[in-house]
Design a protein around this nucleic acid. Structure first.
Length: 828
RNA sequence: GGUCGCAUAGUUCAGUUGGUUAGAACGCCUGUUUUACACACAGGAGGUCUCCGGUUCGAGUCCGGAUGUGACCA
């Protein structure tokens, strides 16, 4: 009320329209203020419909003042929250106290009608939790708008850099966040009233009159023409001076001079984002363009190797800056696209006349299991060090990379780990006062903890344990020496299991690369096409496909897809099929050498592909393999060098981290071969399925007959040993005229039928049931395909290849149906 | 209030320009100490893709709306 400068009503409010233009008196200090009409501020429905206007201490009222500048502004607060001279008798008293006093005084004066409770949005300081008092103050701004002559200003230039593709966002939708915000071109307030930060390099002195100030500017501008001297816009008798010099001695001398002349440095520091915006070039020595950035001796020695092209040692030119600026990619979180990314671009354009980076990759944010941002104050975060101890650094990195897709956020449900038995205890949300915390679901005790009372504990839910422990929470520090339940997330088992799998696969490979009872150690030699077995050609085809997929995904920053591709290949193809299939060859002296060479070649590529995600394991394996095979058969880097050879002998880098990224020839990809291989896999799975259904012990060998066309039969026969190896089934016969034996289990694939004689073991009723189920499935699909093909519109409108695809499927399904029907007839 | 997301199996997530039977991991069920790996292997169950409407021969996918949920900005 003490700072009010008007009373505002709605311009269409009939109750008050006649009062607009008149004045009222503030009873507290007898100040006269006008009654004004403002449609944006006043709301006829709320309260009396008339609202007091306090421009200095309310953003909405300030906006009203800018529309009605004649009402003026009165700032009634001191920086410490007490009232200033406009507070009258309450000058120097804290605002909180004055609020009560004002009500009392109004009552005394007979103007008190009552107090009404009302919920209002009130911002609080994040640090002190005190309500924020809006307050008018002088601040430093950087102008974002265009120049007066219409040339693009800082904001527009930064928008242009993204619009014309000099800077690209991944995922691209974040471009909008950036350009929308910059397009507002709001001036950037860069001053902060804090202790920590770059101090604003502006000095000032207030003279007795403006003439003296002007003379000073003239005189000093010619004497110190490196620096910027100005008359303050808000006070014509104040001189401002901006100091900046990269030479510390000169800086010191200038500061000394300023102090003797009576100049004072601005007490504010720069906005943290202003300082951060300098990062891409300031870290590379800017603004010193004469010398490379300072490095300590040891560091310099290391750097000179990789930076040898940059003329190490003393130089008269900063060569590091042009070498590293602009950078290639900035990886960041979406909540600082405006604060940091935009500021880096516009600052880089201003200082360096170039963008700071070409790509901006915005990664998802990790939320807890309840969908909340992880934060210390909620107590729902995980400590990476705890995770690394529990799961391993590579496992964490691999798992995190597998989260990093194009979505906005990912959930990471956390649990508490009982320090006594390792049991995982689920969390729950828990309300304390106004905040929601995360605590163990089995928490014993309550918050807040009364003085001297025991701290709440986690009670282990494992019936064999039931012990109590303290837990990580923002509400108390654990007692010294107390058992503390760590917060972990079982989702990291994904990465841990994979790392373990990969490690064991490599271990298996190494066991078979050295001399052992199984045969000789690794010998490097080239591998030619005709030495390759079906499984070799298959794994090399798959490797080539996966490597090219990885290139594509990494180029788009789709780390989740990249980890999935390499994991699936490693686990489901390399381990589950390839390693199993070559085991017999590794035991056979005649075929061992070639199998070793192909195996190591694939493993070598795999280690390189996995290096970005599991660097520690990869380096360890690399070093061990280098002992076994410093030279090895690897994909021919430039075809034509060694015609006929698929793999040639090459030496490898000292360390995995220095090894080149694998380039697998795309000509290795063989779709037809992969299809043939898939049929073999399907057959083996079908045989295993029969074994599982009839509970045939793993040691028992079974017979297999395949009825199929001659070419497929030939394929089957050529890999007959693998049926034995992978399904313990002996291929008795394969061909078009194979008959289904009596008392056999059957399975039907797209273009082949399999029969497994199980005399005595077979349960006819159960087998019939199984076949009928399968028939129903096939018929469902046939029906679907038929209804499509009977639909004229589909046949006429759909792409030809789609229609043909459906026809092909239908034909396959129909022939499969026939065969199942046959089997059912035999069984019945 | 404005803008940008998300909603698919019990859970956490894939699903590229609309087009064969919607996939994975974990969990669950059955079996296996098979000499790399039980943090494993083999097999299996589990989804009317949040709801309503539209476009289309055809929608998890495109459009509109609703509901829930998240972020940024005001």
């Amino acid at each position: 009320m003490l700072g009010d400068t008007a009373v505002c009503v709605h311009p269409t409010d009939e109750r008050y329209m006649h009062l607009v233009g008149k004045s009222v008196k503030i009873p507290l200090n007898d100040r006269i203020i006008p009654i004004i009409a403002d449609a944006l501020l006043a709301d006829k429905e709320k309260g009396t419909g008339a609202v007091k206007v306090t421009p200095a201490h309310d953003p909405n009222d300030y906006a009203c003042y800018t529309r009605n500048p004649e009402i003026g502004v009165i700032n009634i607060l001191n920086p410490d929250g007490t009232l200033n001279e406009h507070g009258g008798e309450w000058e120097g008293v804290d605002r909180l106290e004055v609020r009560g006093k004002v009500v009392e005084r109004m009552n005394e004066l007979g103007h008190y009608e009552g107090v009404e409770d009302r919920v209002i949005p009130l911002k609080h300081s994040d640090r002190s939790k005190t309500p924020v008092e809006p307050y008018l103050s002088d601040q430093w701004f950087v102008r974002m708008g265009d120049d007066e002559d219409g040339k693009p200003g800082l904001a527009q230039k930064a928008v242009d850099a993204v619009e014309d593709g000099r800077v690209r966002f991944f995922p691209s939708r974040y471009k909008k966040t950036y350009t929308d915000w910059l397009a507002e071109k709001r001036d950037w307030c860069i001053s902060r009233q804090l202790w920590w930060g770059h101090r604003i390099p502006v000095w000032s002195k207030t003279f007795n009159n403006s003439q003296k100030a002007e003379e000073t500017v003239k005189e000093f501008s010619s004497r110190w023409d490196d620096y910027c001297w100005r008359i303050s816009e808000s006070d014509p008798s104040t001189v401002l001076m901006c100091i900046d010099h990269q030479d510390e001695d000169i800086m010191e001398a200038v500061e000394k001079m300023l102090k003797t002349e009576g100049y004072v440095q601005d007490p504010d520091v720069l906005d943290t984002w202003f300082s951060s915006a300098l990062w891409p070039h300031a870290t590379l020595g800017w603004p010193d363009l004469e010398r490379n950035p300072p490095l300590d001796e040891e560091e310099l020695a290391k750097q000179t190797q990789s930076l040898s092209t940059l003329a190490p040692g003393p130089s008269t030119e900063n060569k590091v800056l042009p070498y590293f600026y602009p950078g290639s990619v900035l990886i960041t979180s979406r909540d600082i696209i405006t604060l940091w990314v935009a500021r880096m671009v516009l600052t880089g354009l201003y200082n360096m006349d170039d963008v700071p980076f070409q790509h901006v990759h915005v990664h998802p944010k990790i939320l807890d299991g309840f969908g909340q941002t992880m934060s210390k104050s909620k107590g729902n975060g995980v400590d990476p060090v705890d995770l690394i101890e529990k799961y391993g650094a590579d496992a964490i990195r691999f798992t995190i990379a597998s989260f990093a897709g194009e979505t906005q956020d990912v959930r990471l449900p956390i649990s508490y780990e009982c320090p006594h038995c390792g049991e995982m205890i689920a969390p729950k949300q828990y309300k304390v006062a106004t905040s929601t915390l995360v605590v163990p679901s089995t928490m014993k005790g309550d918050f807040p903890v009364p003085q001297g009372a025991p701290k709440p504990t986690l009670v282990c839910s494992n019936k064999k344990c039931k012990q109590e422990s303290q837990f990580t929470t923002p509400l108390y520090d654990p007692d010294e020496g107390a058992a503390v339940a760590k917060m972990v997330s079982e989702r990291f088992e994904y990465g841990r299991n994979f790392c373990n799998k990969f490690w064991n696969a490599a271990r298996f490979a190494m066991m078979n690369l050295v001399e052992s009872d199984n045969g000789a150690g690794y010998t490097p030699d080239e591998v030619t096409e005709d030495q390759l077995q079906l499984e070799d050609r298959w794994i090399l085809s798959r490797l080539s496909t996966v490597a090219s997929e990885m290139d594509e995904y990494l180029g788009r920053y789709q780390f989740d897809a990249a980890t999935r591709a390499v994991r699936d290949f490693t686990w489901n193809e390399f381990c589950d099929w390839y390693l199993e299939m070559i085991k017999p060859r590794l035991r056979d002296a005649k075929s061992r050498a070639v199998a070793q060479r192909v195996l190591l070649s694939v493993l070598d590529s795999l280690i390189r592909l996995l290096q970005p995600f599991t660097p520690f394991i990869c380096e360890e394996l690399w070093q061990r393999l280098k002992e076994i095979a410093p030279e090895r058969a690897l994909p021919v880097s430039s075809p034509g060098d060694s015609p006929g050879a698929k793999l040639t002998t090459q030496s490898v880098a000292d360390a995995c981290i220095n090894a080149s990224w694998p380039t697998i020839p795309s000509s290795w990809q063989d779709e037809a071969l992969e299809k043939r291989f898939a049929r073999l896999q399907d057959t083996i799975v079908a045989v295993r399925n029969v074994r599982a259904i009839y509970n045939i012990p793993p040691g028992t060998s079974i017979k297999l007959l395949m009825r199929t066309a001659a070419d497929v039969a030939g394929d089957m026969e050529s890999v007959a040993s693998q049926f034995e190896n992978l399904a313990k089934a002996v291929l008795e016969a394969a061909g078009a005229d194979v008959e289904r034996p009596i008392g056999a289990a059957s399975f039907s694939l797209g273009d082949a039928d399999g029969y497994i004689p199980l005399e005595g073991l077979i349960d006819t009723a159960e087998e019939l049931e199984r076949q009928k189920k399968k028939l129903a499935e096939v018929e469902k699909h046939i029906k679907g395909a038929e209804s499509k093909l009977n639909n004229e519109k589909f046949v006429n409108n759909a792409k030809e290849e789609v229609v043909n695809g459906v026809r092909e499927t239908l034909a396959n399904q129909q022939s499969q149906r026939e065969r199942i029907v046959e089997i059912i007839r035999d069984l019945s």
